[in-house]
Write a protein that binds this DNA or RNA. Structure first.
Length: 301
RNA sequence: GCGCAGGUGGCAGAGCGGUCAAUUGCAUCAGACUGUAAAUCUGACGCCUUUAUGGCUACGAAGGUUCGAAUCCUUCCCUGCGCA
């Protein structure tokens, strides 16, 4: 089990902010191992579309929780939470520094704060039935089952309502939120590049993606039996690729732009999440990061 | 040059005499988030202010009809298609 005194370095930031490269460099310097906190990179076969760490990075430093899930399956935060905590423990046992890196705020939170998820796995049968219901009907169902949760959920959000109903059906009600923070000395660093720089990086990234076999990757996934519906869940890049293959997006150029646009929108949601976490130490450049990290190591527990 | 269609907010596109600062979609901005989280959802979105059943300027331009016009009439400018 994790001990007080262990250290955990967390690096967050929007897509294309240079997290992975930096993390790899730090890991090398600090004798660390990387634990990815990216909800897309967990799936196997999404090298290009989800922007896996580069081969060089992978070779230089041990990376965990990348490409280990069958893309036909649906992986959830709860599973991630368990795996990640276990992985981190193992790294500590090896007397190395775990570096949690990623852009999926919910995943980071699940690991660091240890949000306790009600022990109710998704129930596809129930979800199938509820799919036909209107948001209002769902809200009414929930009100009958668990008035308390009904008062606090986002009643306009079908996905939240369905989950709440799912939990209430099994447990009688949705338990009050609890958390079980990781027992470690945690330092969180966020990279927040200048907007123009990030935009440029994102455009470059989209371009590179489209021109280095992304379409082929998508075709392979389709060939392996990934259904279109599932493909959409693999992220906006894959959604866009499908539209390209169907001819709704006419050219690679247009695909590129579409992906850039969606990435920018996503970046905004990421930042909305991270900004409210006051523990994060924000930096703009890797130089700044180095000095922060040095302090982190010096304040030897 | 003639005929037809059309010019509406950043874009697309409704409205076709009052209830229109103007439906809706996209984009943009802000926010939420207890097992799909790159997902899902919410709010704002002409300008001004003492934020209000407030004021101002707006639907190509200029005039006109009307108590009242994005909506009707006239002329002009522009765009697309057809014919010369």
């Amino acid at each position: 089990m994790s001990q007080e005194g262990e250290k955990l370095l967390v690096i967050v930031g929007p897509t294309a902010s240079g997290k992975s490269a930096l993390a790899a460099a730090l890991a090398k310097k600090l004798n660390g191992e990387i634990v990815s906190a990216d909800s897309r990179q967990v799936y196997r076969g999404l090298e290009i579309g989800s922007n896996y760490p580069t081969k060089t990075e992978l070779k230089a430093v041990p990376h965990h929780l990348v490409g280990f899930v069958d893309p036909k399956k649906t992986f959830t935060v709860a599973e991630y939470q368990k795996k990640a905590r276990k992985t981190i423990d193992d790294i500590w046992k090896r007397h190395k520094l775990p570096i949690l890196v990623g852009g999926t705020g919910f995943y980071i939170q699940a690991v660091v704060d240890g949000t306790v998820m009600p022990e109710v796995p998704p129930n596809e049968t129930l979800r199938g039935k509820l799919k036909a219901k209107s948001t209002e009907e769902l809200a009414n169902m929930l009100r009958n089952k668990d008035k308390k949760r009904w008062e606090t959920v986002d009643r306009r959000n079908p996905r939240r309502l369905v989950r709440a109903i799912e939990i209430a059906t099994v447990l009688g009600k949705v338990p009050a939120p609890r958390s079980n923070p990781i027992k470690a000395d945690v330092t969180m660093i966020g990279i927040d590049p200048e907007k123009e720089l990030l935009e440029t990086a994102i455009k470059k990234r989209s371009r590179g993606m489209v021109h280095s076999g992304f379409i082929h990757e998508v075709k392979m996934l389709l060939k392996d039996g990934i259904k279109e519906e599932k493909m959409q869940e693999l992220g906006f890049e894959y959604q866009a690729a499908l539209r390209y293959l169907k001819g709704e997006i006419k050219s690679k150029r247009e695909l590129e732009n579409e992906i850039s646009k969606m990435t920018l929108q996503y970046v905004k949601r990421q930042m909305t999440w991270f900004r409210k976490d006051s523990r994060i130490i924000w930096v703009r450049s890797s130089n700044e990061i180095l000095s922060v990290v040095q302090q982190f190591l010096k304040k030897k527990s």
